[in-house]
């Protein structure tokens, strides 16, 4: 087995030399990646390492930073969970049913990617305030959405929904009806079939979609800041807002310290998603 793998690797290495352009593309890729991404990000790291541990600890445990982190993480988590539910429903509807406006719904899913976040932000905040629709009716029954946690979650549902739909949809398309039929013939009910047959197949894609939506939610700025109210007292500031505020007050030490922690959080999310994807591909290769 190992001998075969080594042989295959060698063959691939060999193939690599047949097609010209290795040096050129490697040069362009590494140079541009370094200039535009790696060196700027490293500048944050270098600066934040010049802070002493006590300074760092003071910044991170200050009221505004602590609660903003909590708000961002909790709201992103809840929004990503809600997106998983609606994402599966949407993906399922789009894959399994043919209906008149299917193309329209399918085409609109990416709207949150196409619509600038600031536009989404001001619109959602107006819609869900007590003068807009549906905010008027929601506040009549005592649900204030704009300028509360609910507002943050609503905005994050908006920006996150395409991630879940677009990761689940292709998996559903490839899913074989046979297993469902078999489960049905063996006497399984529909919900039982969904839970025990379909859901396990969807789980890796769903986790990836969840991770993408969650990561996007934690870093989200434009669509959230108008609807969130940004009150330190009511803990409706998100973490990106706090960084921006520190930047505006020229508090670079504070901004980089918070950014460092955010970088670590997104690195952990990225890493766990990569590990899950690797496990997924290993599983599908074994089948």
């Amino acid at each position: 087995m190992r001998g075969y793998k080594a042989k295959q690797d060698r063959r691939m290495m060999h193939a690599g030399h047949i097609i010209p352009g290795f040096g050129l593309t490697m040069g362009i890729t590494v140079t541009m990646l370094s200039l535009f991404i790696l060196i700027p990000v490293a500048s944050i790291l270098v600066y934040s390492f010049s802070l002493s541990l006590t300074e760092f600890w003071q910044i991170m445990t200050s009221e505004s930073v602590k609660f903003a982190f909590l708000t961002s993480i909790v709201c992103s988590f809840v929004a990503a969970l809600i997106n998983c539910i609606f994402g599966v429903i949407l993906a399922w509807t789009l894959v399994r049913y043919k209906f008149v406006h299917r193309r329209l719904i399918d085409g609109l899913i990416e709207l949150p990617f196409a619509l600038p976040t600031a536009v989404a932000g001001i619109t959602l905040s107006k819609m869900y305030s007590n003068t807009g629709f549906p905010g008027k009716y929601l506040s009549a029954i005592g649900l204030d959405v704009s300028y509360t946690y609910l507002g943050i979650i609503t905005a994050l549902i908006f920006v996150g929904i395409p991630f879940v739909v677009r990761t689940v949809q292709p998996v559903l398309e490839k899913l074989d009806y046979q297993y469902e039929e078999a489960a049905h013939v063996l006497g399984a009910g529909r919900l039982y079939t969904f839970r025990r047959v379909i859901l396990p197949e969807l789980t890796p894609a769903l986790l990836t979609g969840f991770g993408l939506a969650f990561a996007r939610g934690i870093g989200e700025y434009g669509s959230v800041i108008y609807i969130s109210g940004n009150s330190a007292k009511e803990h409706t500031q998100v973490i990106s807002y706090v960084i921006m505020q520190k930047l505006n007050y020229m508090d670079y030490a504070g901004a980089t310290a918070v950014a460092l922690v955010m970088l670590i959080v997104s690195f952990i999310i990225l890493l766990s998603m990569n590990i899950m994807q690797m496990q997924q591909s290993r599983r599908t290769n074994n089948v």
Binding site: G219, E220, I243, L247, S266, I269, L270
Partner: peptide, 17 residues
């Protein structure tokens, strides 16, 4: 990397540079 980083941090990166 840019997919998982807050855009605000991207701005901060160039300010720190």
């Amino acid at each position: 990397i840019p997919f998982s980083i807050s855009p605000v941090i991207a701005g901060l990166a160039f300010i720190m540079m």
